[in-house]
């Protein structure tokens, strides 16, 4: 079993992973313990949750409505057809 005491780099890495609900129980346990003794990581954890909310609210999925313009499509088809005939 890996060590119980983790540094800030490792603690925030677990915090990042847990934003996606993919941190293991043992990882979360080590993080909680680290947060008892480290204010900076406490602040990071709080702000990281805000970053997650900001992303959920303001970053949006690709809408799948990107299109080539008609002239681009014609040009593209020309480039393809040129190679077909080779």
């Amino acid at each position: 079993m890996s060590k119980f005491f983790i540094n800030c780099d490792e603690a925030t890495a677990i915090c990042d992973k847990s934003q996606y609900k993919e941190a293991t129980f043992w990882e979360k346990f080590k993080l909680s313990f680290h947060l008892f003794i480290c204010k900076k990581c406490g602040l990071y954890t709080k702000q990281n949750a805000i970053v997650t909310k900001v992303c959920d609210k303001h970053l949006h999925k690709n809408e799948c409505n990107h299109k080539f313009t008609e002239p681009e499509k014609i040009k593209l088809q020309e480039n393809i057809s040129k190679e077909v005939d080779k």
Binding site: N62, C64, H66, K67, K73, Q77, I80, S81
Partner: peptide, 30 residues
């Protein structure tokens, strides 16, 4: 292949742009 641009270009374009996040680059990759 003579209908590829019409039939598939936009679909491939959307697939690509979700990943590379840049229109010109996505078109080149398609």
């Amino acid at each position: 292949p003579n209908n590829w641009a019409q039939s598939h270009a936009d679909y491939l374009f959307n697939y690509t742009i979700t990943r590379v996040n840049n229109e010109d680059l996505a078109k080149d990759i398609v």
